[in-house]
C-alpha cells in the first residue's frame, strides 16, 4: 500500500549526522555496502567493479564540499543517505505498492518482490536516496538496517545501523526522533539540527548538525610559551676535552 499510514506511530527512527565531527573517511558508506550486500537488500550489484568505470548500488555516499571563501573557507564532509521522510513522495508515487512507509517506526522500505523497476520513486526523491539495481531490475534503498536494529541475536549495543556502528569519529547517531526526550532529539535541540531542503515539504526524519563556529585563536593548554630551555654554554674541563675530541 503506497498511501502513507493513516495513524502513524509517534515513533520515528532515524539518524542524526554531525557535520562538525565527520572526517570524510567513507567508513559508514563501506560498512553499509558490506552489511547490506549480504542482508535483506542484497546483493547490491556492482557493475565492472574492477574495470575502468566501476558502477554499483550504494545506500550511503559521502560528498565533500568547500564552503565559504578565503580565510572563512572550510571543508565539510557530508554523508548522504535516505532521510526516512514523514512525507515521502517516493512512496506515494509507487504504482505497485512496493514502496511503503512503516506505521510502527516510520522506516521507508521497498518490497523488492513487488517492484517493477519503473524508477519513478527515484525521480520523486530530491535526496538521491534510491538507486536502481540494473542486474536485478528493481529499486533499492537504505533500510535503516532493519535486520540489525531489531536483531535479538545481537548485543543491545550492536542493534544500530551499520553506518552508526562503524563510524570511528562518532559522527552518526541513531534513535527515535519522534520522542522529544530521546538522546538524539536532545542533541538536535542542543546543536540546532536541521532538515535538508525543507522547501520540498518532505519533512525528513534524519537531521544534520551544522559545523560549529570556527575557533579564532589557539586556546591555553597550560604549557609555557617557550618550550625549549636556552642552549647551555660550551662545557669546560674533562667534558670540554671529550666534546672537542668527539667533534673532530
Amino acid at each position: 500500500m503506497t498511501s502513507l499510514p493513516e495513524q502513524p506511530s509517534p515513533k520515528r527512527l532515524g539518524l542524526v549526522i554531525d557535520l562538525d565531527i565527520c572526517v570524510g573517511c567513507h567508513a559508514c558508506a563501506v560498512n553499509c555496502k558490506e552489511w547490506n550486500s549480504g542482508g535483506v537488500s542484497g546483493p547490491l550489484t556492482d557493475l565492472m567493479p574492477y574495470g575502468a568505470e566501476p558502477d554499483g548500488v550504494w545506500f550511503n555516499r559521502v560528498h565533500t564540499y568547500e564552503v565559504g571563501e578565503g580565510a572563512e573557507g572550510r571543508t565539510v564532509h557530508f554523508p548522504r543517505s535516505c532521510l526516512h521522510c514523514a512525507e515521502p513522495a517516493c512512496v506515494t508515487v509507487c504504482p505497485t505498492g512496493a514502496s511503503f512507509k512503516r506505521a510502527e517506526d516510520g522506516i521507508v522500505l521497498i518490497d523488492e518482490d513487488l517492484c517493477i523497476g519503473c524508477k519513478l520513486c527515484s525521480w520523486a526523491c530530491p535526496y538521491g536516496a534510491r538507486e536502481f539495481d540494473e542486474d536485478v531490475g528493481v529499486m533499492k534503498k537504505c533500510t535503516l538496517c532493519i535486520d540489525r536494529i531489531y536483531n535479538e541475536t545481537f548485543a543491545p549495543e550492536d542493534r544500530v545501523p551499520a553506518c552508526v556502528a562503524t563510524c570511528p569519529a562518532s559522527a552518526r547517531h541513531f534513535g527515535d526522533l519522534g520522542d522529544p526526550d530521546s538522546d538524539v532529539s536532545k542533541l538536535v535541540v542542543e546543536r540546532l539540527g536541521y532538515d535538508l531542503m525543507p522547501e520540498m515539504g518532505y519533512a525528513p526524519t534524519n537531521k544534520y548538525l551544522p559545523p560549529r563556529p570556527r575557533q579564532r585563536s589557539a586556546g591555553c593548554t597550560g604549557a609555557p610559551a617557550a618550550a625549549l630551555a636556552p642552549a647551555a654554554p660550551a662545557p669546560q674541563g674533562l667534558l670540554g676535552w671529550l666534546d672537542r675530541l668527539l667533534s673532530q
Binding site: 557535520l19 570524510g24 560528498h63 565533500t64 564540499y65 568547500e66 564552503v67 565559504g68 571563501e69 572563512e72 573557507g73 572550510r74 571543508t75 565539510v76 557530508f78 530530491p126 536541521y194 532538515d195 535538508l196 531542503m197 525543507p198 522547501e199 544534520y208 551544522p210 559545523p211
Partner: peptide, 15 residues
C-alpha cells in the same frame, strides 16, 4: 539548501 550549509558562504563540490 540541499546541504543546509546556508550561513557560511557559497557551497562548492570539492570531492
Amino acid at each position: 539548501s540541499a546541504t543546509g550549509l546556508v550561513n557560511s558562504g557559497p557551497v562548492r563540490l570539492f570531492e
